[in-house]
């Protein structure tokens, strides 16, 4: 295992880096460390931002001395790197694949030399980890896309990709929380709002959550989209 690195990020933040790359084992260390930090409730620690391979730690230098904080973080990082991360939740996310909801499905199948049914079977057959949330509020970067579906991004990004599009790009998968520009391929659409300010809990997914996709018909998509209070099923994991 690579050693943990502590990188300066100004006088009010530092980066705890577990390695370099996009990798499930590396990301699991990030979530284990982040969970340990939440648990430890270190005075002066303001908030943490877990990403693919590192955690950005924001702290108040008036409350905690940087050297003391680093020593405490080193201790927790050691435990996290040697332990295992246990995801807390697994979401089941319905997707209507292809057609108007997934306008790139045919192109993706053609480019990968697969049938559209095989693309759907592979995409919906995998289990994904929320590697991190970033780019825009509630945007989940998902790890776990089967290798057979890895495909470079579109030559021309779309300026307006519809909200709740289920997308893939390179080795990654994601769900668009709102309409936004994207160069990723649209396989389908989900009724799941990963970000909704009107909800008591505006953000559905947390870093480290697990997620599976379930194919549904366009009629089922429309039925669920009409229900404003609908939330996808979630399994609490031990």
């Amino acid at each position: 295992m690579q050693s943990v690195r502590f990188l300066d990020a100004g006088e009010q933040a530092l980066v705890v880096e577990f390695g370099d790359g996009i990798d499930p084992a590396l990301n699991a260390m990030v979530h284990a460390f982040d969970a340990a930090l939440q648990e430890a409730a270190i005075p002066g620690l303001q908030e943490t931002l877990p990403t693919y391979r590192s955690v950005l730690v924001h702290f108040d230098p008036a409350t905690i001395d940087r050297v003391a904080l680093r020593a405490r973080l080193r201790e927790l990082a050691g435990l996290a790197a040697s332990g295992r991360f246990h995801p807390a939740r697994r979401w089941l996310v319905p997707v209507a694949y292809g057609g108007a909801a997934g306008m790139d499905l045919d192109d993706v199948a053609r480019a990968l030399e697969l049938s559209t049914a095989e693309v759907v079977r592979l995409h919906a057959g995998a289990e994904y980890v929320v590697y991190m949330l970033g780019f825009s509020p509630g945007f989940p970067y998902l790890g776990g896309l089967p290798q057979r579906l890895h495909l470079t991004r579109r030559a021309e990004p779309r300026l307006r990709t519809p909200a709740r599009s289920v997308i893939i790009g390179g080795q990654q998968a994601a769900i668009l929380p709102g309409e936004m520009p994207s160069g990723w391929h649209v396989l389908g659409r989900t009724p799941v709002h990963s970000f909704d300010l009107r909800r008591a809990e505006p953000f559905l997914f947390r870093p480290g959550d697990l997620l599976r996709f379930e194919p549904v018909s366009e009629a089922e998509l429309a039925r669920l989209e009409a229900r404003t209070d609908w939330l996808p099923p979630v399994e609490r994991l031990a």
């Binding site: 980066v15 996009i22 990403t51 590192s54």
Partner: peptide, 10 residues
Amino acid sequence: IVSDGIPPGA
């Protein structure tokens, strides 16, 4: 780089 968090003033 592999995308990571952006600290204040970066």
